[in-house]
Design a protein around this nucleic acid. Structure first.
Lengths: 145, 145
DNA sequence: CTTAATTACTTAACATGTGAATTAAATCAG
DNA sequence: CTGATTTAATTCACATGTTAAGTAATTAAG
Protein backbone atom coordinates (compact mmCIF):
# COMPACT_ATOMS: atom_id res chain seq x y z
CA UNK A 1 0.00 0.00 0.00
CA UNK A 2 1.33 3.42 -0.93
CA UNK A 3 2.19 5.61 2.00
CA UNK A 4 -0.29 8.42 2.53
CA UNK A 5 1.86 11.50 1.88
CA UNK A 6 1.62 14.51 4.17
CA UNK A 7 -0.07 17.26 2.28
CA UNK A 8 -0.35 20.33 4.46
CA UNK A 9 3.44 20.50 4.59
CA UNK A 10 3.69 20.44 0.82
CA UNK A 11 5.38 23.48 -0.70
CA UNK A 12 2.95 23.38 -3.60
CA UNK A 13 -0.07 23.49 -1.33
CA UNK A 14 1.47 26.14 0.90
CA UNK A 15 2.11 28.33 -2.13
CA UNK A 16 -1.41 27.84 -3.44
CA UNK A 17 -2.96 28.73 -0.10
CA UNK A 18 -0.69 31.71 0.53
CA UNK A 19 -1.37 33.09 -2.92
CA UNK A 20 -5.10 32.72 -2.41
CA UNK A 21 -4.87 34.38 1.03
CA UNK A 22 -2.99 37.37 -0.35
CA UNK A 23 -4.93 37.89 -3.56
CA UNK A 24 -8.27 37.56 -1.77
CA UNK A 25 -7.35 40.71 0.14
CA UNK A 26 -7.59 42.63 -3.12
CA UNK A 27 -10.22 40.76 -5.12
CA UNK A 28 -13.28 42.50 -3.70
CA UNK A 29 -11.73 45.90 -4.12
CA UNK A 30 -10.82 45.50 -7.78
CA UNK A 31 -14.14 43.76 -8.45
CA UNK A 32 -15.88 46.89 -7.14
CA UNK A 33 -14.18 48.69 -10.02
CA UNK A 34 -15.42 46.05 -12.44
CA UNK A 35 -12.00 44.45 -12.83
CA UNK A 36 -10.57 41.00 -12.25
CA UNK A 37 -7.19 40.56 -10.61
CA UNK A 38 -5.36 39.74 -13.85
CA UNK A 39 -6.94 42.79 -15.48
CA UNK A 40 -5.82 44.89 -12.53
CA UNK A 41 -2.26 43.62 -12.85
CA UNK A 42 -2.26 44.80 -16.47
CA UNK A 43 -3.61 48.24 -15.54
CA UNK A 44 -1.03 48.51 -12.80
CA UNK A 45 1.84 47.52 -15.06
CA UNK A 46 0.88 50.27 -17.50
CA UNK A 47 0.32 52.98 -14.91
CA UNK A 48 2.16 56.27 -15.27
CA UNK A 49 2.20 56.36 -19.06
CA UNK A 50 4.17 53.16 -19.52
CA UNK A 51 3.99 51.68 -23.01
CA UNK A 52 4.60 47.93 -23.27
CA UNK A 53 4.40 45.20 -25.88
CA UNK A 54 2.43 42.05 -25.20
CA UNK A 55 5.43 39.85 -24.44
CA UNK A 56 6.88 42.19 -21.83
CA UNK A 57 3.47 42.83 -20.35
CA UNK A 58 2.75 39.11 -20.12
CA UNK A 59 6.03 38.52 -18.33
CA UNK A 60 5.59 41.36 -15.84
CA UNK A 61 2.00 40.44 -15.00
CA UNK A 62 2.63 36.68 -14.98
CA UNK A 63 -0.10 36.10 -17.53
CA UNK A 64 0.19 33.73 -20.48
CA UNK A 65 0.01 35.20 -23.96
CA UNK A 66 -3.40 33.77 -24.93
CA UNK A 67 -4.96 35.12 -21.75
CA UNK A 68 -3.37 38.49 -22.28
CA UNK A 69 -4.75 38.68 -25.81
CA UNK A 70 -8.26 38.33 -24.39
CA UNK A 71 -7.61 40.75 -21.52
CA UNK A 72 -6.25 43.41 -23.87
CA UNK A 73 -9.26 43.00 -26.13
CA UNK A 74 -11.53 43.37 -23.11
CA UNK A 75 -9.79 46.42 -21.64
CA UNK A 76 -9.55 48.06 -25.03
CA UNK A 77 -13.27 47.52 -25.49
CA UNK A 78 -13.86 49.27 -22.18
CA UNK A 79 -11.72 52.19 -23.27
CA UNK A 80 -9.13 51.71 -20.53
CA UNK A 81 -6.18 50.95 -22.79
CA UNK A 82 -5.28 51.77 -26.38
CA UNK A 83 -2.85 50.61 -29.04
CA UNK A 84 0.34 52.48 -29.83
CA UNK A 85 1.90 52.26 -33.30
CA UNK A 86 5.08 50.18 -33.14
CA UNK A 87 8.09 50.00 -35.45
CA UNK A 88 7.92 46.21 -35.42
CA UNK A 89 4.50 45.53 -36.86
CA UNK A 90 4.33 42.09 -35.27
CA UNK A 91 4.18 43.67 -31.85
CA UNK A 92 1.10 45.00 -30.12
CA UNK A 93 2.18 47.90 -27.93
CA UNK A 94 -0.42 49.32 -25.55
CA UNK A 95 -0.78 52.05 -22.93
CA UNK A 96 -3.48 53.35 -20.63
CA UNK A 97 -6.00 55.87 -21.91
CA UNK A 98 -6.90 58.88 -19.78
CA UNK A 99 -9.79 56.82 -18.40
CA UNK A 100 -7.37 54.00 -17.68
CA UNK A 101 -5.02 56.28 -15.77
CA UNK A 102 -7.95 57.68 -13.81
CA UNK A 103 -9.12 54.16 -12.99
CA UNK A 104 -5.65 53.26 -11.78
CA UNK A 105 -5.24 56.38 -9.67
CA UNK A 106 -8.58 55.86 -7.99
CA UNK A 107 -8.02 52.18 -7.25
CA UNK A 108 -4.37 52.53 -6.32
CA UNK A 109 -5.11 54.60 -3.21
CA UNK A 110 -7.02 51.78 -1.57
CA UNK A 111 -4.88 49.04 -3.08
CA UNK A 112 -1.72 50.57 -1.69
CA UNK A 113 -3.34 50.89 1.71
CA UNK A 114 -4.36 47.24 1.69
CA UNK A 115 -0.83 46.24 0.78
CA UNK A 116 0.51 48.39 3.62
CA UNK A 117 -1.94 46.74 6.01
CA UNK A 118 -0.61 43.32 5.07
CA UNK A 119 2.93 44.55 5.54
CA UNK A 120 1.92 45.95 8.90
CA UNK A 121 0.26 42.76 10.08
CA UNK A 122 2.97 40.42 8.85
CA UNK A 123 6.05 42.53 9.47
CA UNK A 124 7.94 44.73 7.05
CA UNK A 125 11.22 42.89 7.36
CA UNK A 126 9.58 39.45 7.29
CA UNK A 127 7.76 40.43 4.12
CA UNK A 128 10.91 41.64 2.41
CA UNK A 129 12.63 38.42 3.43
CA UNK A 130 9.75 36.34 2.13
CA UNK A 131 9.80 38.02 -1.26
CA UNK A 132 13.56 37.52 -1.43
CA UNK A 133 13.19 33.86 -0.48
CA UNK A 134 10.50 33.30 -3.10
CA UNK A 135 12.68 34.90 -5.75
CA UNK A 136 15.62 32.78 -4.69
CA UNK A 137 13.47 29.65 -4.91
CA UNK A 138 12.50 30.63 -8.42
CA UNK A 139 16.11 31.28 -9.39
CA UNK A 140 17.17 27.88 -8.05
CA UNK A 141 14.42 26.07 -9.96
CA UNK A 142 15.10 27.91 -13.19
CA UNK A 143 18.74 26.91 -12.93
CA UNK A 144 17.73 23.27 -12.54
CA UNK A 145 16.04 23.47 -15.93
CA UNK B 1 0.86 61.74 -12.56
CA UNK B 2 0.58 58.54 -10.58
CA UNK B 3 3.84 57.13 -9.39
CA UNK B 4 4.92 54.01 -11.25
CA UNK B 5 4.82 51.33 -8.54
CA UNK B 6 7.60 48.78 -8.25
CA UNK B 7 6.28 45.46 -9.34
CA UNK B 8 8.99 42.85 -9.13
CA UNK B 9 9.10 43.38 -5.38
CA UNK B 10 5.39 42.80 -5.04
CA UNK B 11 4.43 39.91 -2.81
CA UNK B 12 1.58 39.02 -5.14
CA UNK B 13 3.88 38.77 -8.14
CA UNK B 14 6.54 36.89 -6.19
CA UNK B 15 3.94 34.34 -5.10
CA UNK B 16 2.62 33.93 -8.61
CA UNK B 17 6.08 33.40 -10.06
CA UNK B 18 7.21 31.05 -7.30
CA UNK B 19 4.07 28.96 -7.63
CA UNK B 20 4.58 28.74 -11.38
CA UNK B 21 8.25 27.82 -10.95
CA UNK B 22 7.41 25.01 -8.51
CA UNK B 23 4.37 23.57 -10.25
CA UNK B 24 6.11 23.61 -13.63
CA UNK B 25 8.56 21.09 -12.20
CA UNK B 26 5.71 18.58 -12.04
CA UNK B 27 3.45 19.55 -14.91
CA UNK B 28 5.19 17.60 -17.65
CA UNK B 29 5.39 14.50 -15.50
CA UNK B 30 1.69 14.38 -14.61
CA UNK B 31 0.76 15.35 -18.17
CA UNK B 32 2.63 12.26 -19.35
CA UNK B 33 0.11 10.30 -17.29
CA UNK B 34 -2.74 12.17 -18.93
CA UNK B 35 -3.45 14.27 -15.84
CA UNK B 36 -3.53 17.96 -15.05
CA UNK B 37 -2.02 19.29 -11.83
CA UNK B 38 -5.39 19.83 -10.10
CA UNK B 39 -6.40 16.29 -11.08
CA UNK B 40 -3.15 15.00 -9.67
CA UNK B 41 -3.74 16.82 -6.38
CA UNK B 42 -7.07 15.02 -6.10
CA UNK B 43 -5.52 11.64 -6.84
CA UNK B 44 -2.80 12.30 -4.32
CA UNK B 45 -5.24 13.37 -1.61
CA UNK B 46 -7.13 10.10 -2.02
CA UNK B 47 -4.06 7.85 -2.13
CA UNK B 48 -3.86 4.93 0.26
CA UNK B 49 -7.56 4.14 0.41
CA UNK B 50 -8.63 7.52 1.77
CA UNK B 51 -12.32 8.28 1.41
CA UNK B 52 -13.28 11.97 1.34
CA UNK B 53 -16.34 14.09 0.71
CA UNK B 54 -16.23 16.90 -1.81
CA UNK B 55 -15.92 19.71 0.72
CA UNK B 56 -12.94 18.19 2.53
CA UNK B 57 -11.32 17.24 -0.74
CA UNK B 58 -11.77 20.73 -2.12
CA UNK B 59 -10.16 22.24 0.96
CA UNK B 60 -7.18 19.88 0.99
CA UNK B 61 -6.49 20.26 -2.71
CA UNK B 62 -7.16 24.01 -2.77
CA UNK B 63 -9.73 23.62 -5.51
CA UNK B 64 -13.07 25.42 -5.57
CA UNK B 65 -16.21 23.33 -5.40
CA UNK B 66 -17.40 23.93 -8.97
CA UNK B 67 -14.00 22.95 -10.36
CA UNK B 68 -13.93 19.87 -8.19
CA UNK B 69 -17.34 18.80 -9.45
CA UNK B 70 -15.96 18.77 -12.98
CA UNK B 71 -12.73 17.07 -11.99
CA UNK B 72 -14.55 14.31 -10.13
CA UNK B 73 -16.81 13.75 -13.11
CA UNK B 74 -13.75 13.54 -15.34
CA UNK B 75 -11.76 11.16 -13.13
CA UNK B 76 -14.81 9.01 -12.52
CA UNK B 77 -15.31 8.78 -16.26
CA UNK B 78 -11.73 7.58 -16.61
CA UNK B 79 -12.31 4.94 -13.95
CA UNK B 80 -9.72 6.37 -11.57
CA UNK B 81 -12.12 7.22 -8.73
CA UNK B 82 -15.52 5.93 -7.63
CA UNK B 83 -18.38 7.01 -5.40
CA UNK B 84 -18.83 5.59 -1.91
CA UNK B 85 -22.32 5.45 -0.37
CA UNK B 86 -22.60 8.05 2.40
CA UNK B 87 -24.99 8.35 5.35
CA UNK B 88 -25.61 11.98 4.50
CA UNK B 89 -27.07 11.77 1.03
CA UNK B 90 -26.14 15.36 0.25
CA UNK B 91 -22.48 14.42 0.34
CA UNK B 92 -20.50 12.92 -2.48
CA UNK B 93 -17.83 10.71 -0.95
CA UNK B 94 -15.19 9.32 -3.31
CA UNK B 95 -12.12 7.10 -3.23
CA UNK B 96 -9.59 5.77 -5.70
CA UNK B 97 -10.35 2.66 -7.71
CA UNK B 98 -7.70 -0.05 -8.10
CA UNK B 99 -6.69 1.69 -11.33
CA UNK B 100 -6.52 4.98 -9.49
CA UNK B 101 -4.27 3.56 -6.79
CA UNK B 102 -2.06 2.04 -9.47
CA UNK B 103 -1.87 5.38 -11.26
CA UNK B 104 -0.89 7.10 -8.03
CA UNK B 105 1.75 4.53 -7.12
CA UNK B 106 3.34 4.73 -10.53
CA UNK B 107 3.39 8.52 -10.65
CA UNK B 108 4.33 9.01 -7.01
CA UNK B 109 7.77 7.48 -7.43
CA UNK B 110 8.89 10.15 -9.85
CA UNK B 111 6.86 12.90 -8.21
CA UNK B 112 8.49 12.24 -4.85
CA UNK B 113 11.91 12.27 -6.46
CA UNK B 114 11.22 15.60 -8.12
CA UNK B 115 10.12 17.05 -4.81
CA UNK B 116 13.28 15.74 -3.18
CA UNK B 117 15.35 17.31 -5.93
CA UNK B 118 13.79 20.69 -5.22
CA UNK B 119 14.45 20.24 -1.52
CA UNK B 120 18.01 19.31 -2.33
CA UNK B 121 18.60 22.31 -4.57
CA UNK B 122 16.93 24.84 -2.30
CA UNK B 123 17.87 23.46 1.09
CA UNK B 124 15.88 21.24 3.44
CA UNK B 125 15.81 23.68 6.30
CA UNK B 126 15.15 26.68 4.06
CA UNK B 127 12.23 24.83 2.52
CA UNK B 128 10.72 23.94 5.87
CA UNK B 129 11.13 27.55 6.96
CA UNK B 130 9.51 28.79 3.77
CA UNK B 131 6.47 26.56 4.20
CA UNK B 132 6.17 27.70 7.81
CA UNK B 133 6.44 31.34 6.75
CA UNK B 134 3.79 30.91 4.06
CA UNK B 135 1.46 29.30 6.56
CA UNK B 136 2.07 32.09 9.04
CA UNK B 137 1.32 34.67 6.37
CA UNK B 138 -1.94 32.90 5.67
CA UNK B 139 -2.82 32.77 9.35
CA UNK B 140 -2.13 36.48 9.75
CA UNK B 141 -4.30 37.38 6.76
CA UNK B 142 -7.16 35.15 7.83
CA UNK B 143 -7.15 36.83 11.23
CA UNK B 144 -7.40 40.24 9.56
CA UNK B 145 -10.68 39.12 7.99
C1' DC C 1 -45.07 16.68 12.61
C1' DT C 2 -44.33 20.76 9.59
C1' DT C 3 -42.01 24.48 7.85
C1' DA C 4 -38.07 27.59 7.80
C1' DA C 5 -33.23 27.72 7.78
C1' DT C 6 -28.97 25.54 6.84
C1' DT C 7 -25.80 22.57 4.46
C1' DA C 8 -23.52 20.01 0.42
C1' DC C 9 -23.23 19.99 -3.91
C1' DT C 10 -24.33 21.13 -8.74
C1' DT C 11 -25.18 24.08 -12.67
C1' DA C 12 -24.55 28.21 -15.33
C1' DA C 13 -21.90 31.98 -17.20
C1' DC C 14 -17.92 34.18 -17.91
C1' DA C 15 -12.70 34.90 -17.21
C1' DT C 16 -8.26 32.88 -17.07
C1' DG C 17 -4.76 28.88 -17.48
C1' DT C 18 -2.52 25.87 -20.74
C1' DG C 19 -0.54 23.68 -24.86
C1' DA C 20 -0.75 23.27 -29.83
C1' DA C 21 -1.48 25.11 -34.27
C1' DT C 22 -1.75 29.42 -37.24
C1' DT C 23 -0.72 33.86 -39.21
C1' DA C 24 2.02 37.77 -40.16
C1' DA C 25 6.25 40.19 -39.96
C1' DA C 26 11.12 40.49 -39.30
C1' DT C 27 15.67 38.34 -39.83
C1' DC C 28 19.03 35.41 -41.87
C1' DA C 29 21.56 32.44 -45.24
C1' DG C 30 23.04 32.04 -49.70
C1' DC D 1 17.05 39.87 -53.64
C1' DT D 2 14.79 35.18 -52.54
C1' DG D 3 13.62 31.45 -49.66
C1' DA D 4 14.17 29.43 -45.00
C1' DT D 5 14.01 30.41 -40.27
C1' DT D 6 12.76 32.79 -36.33
C1' DT D 7 9.83 35.79 -33.67
C1' DA D 8 5.28 38.09 -31.90
C1' DA D 9 0.61 37.53 -31.55
C1' DT D 10 -3.50 35.33 -32.20
C1' DT D 11 -6.75 31.56 -32.46
C1' DC D 12 -8.48 27.10 -30.99
C1' DA D 13 -9.74 23.58 -27.73
C1' DC D 14 -10.15 22.13 -23.39
C1' DA D 15 -9.45 22.54 -18.12
C1' DT D 16 -9.75 25.33 -14.15
C1' DG D 17 -10.93 29.77 -11.40
C1' DT D 18 -14.72 32.52 -9.77
C1' DT D 19 -19.23 34.18 -8.47
C1' DA D 20 -24.10 33.65 -8.32
C1' DA D 21 -28.08 30.92 -8.58
C1' DG D 22 -30.34 26.53 -8.10
C1' DT D 23 -31.41 21.74 -6.11
C1' DA D 24 -31.77 18.23 -2.79
C1' DA D 25 -31.13 16.63 1.84
C1' DT D 26 -30.49 17.62 6.72
C1' DT D 27 -31.35 20.22 10.78
C1' DA D 28 -33.75 23.37 13.67
C1' DA D 29 -37.82 26.02 15.30
C1' DG D 30 -42.54 26.03 16.44
Amino acid sequence: MAEAPRYDDSLTIALLRAREAVTSQFRNHVAAGGLTLPQWRVIRALAGGTELDTTTLAHRCVILAPSLTRIIKHLEGRGLIEKVPARDKRQRVVRLTADGEAMFTEMWVVSKAKYAAIEDAFGTEEMRDLVATLNRLRAVLEDKS
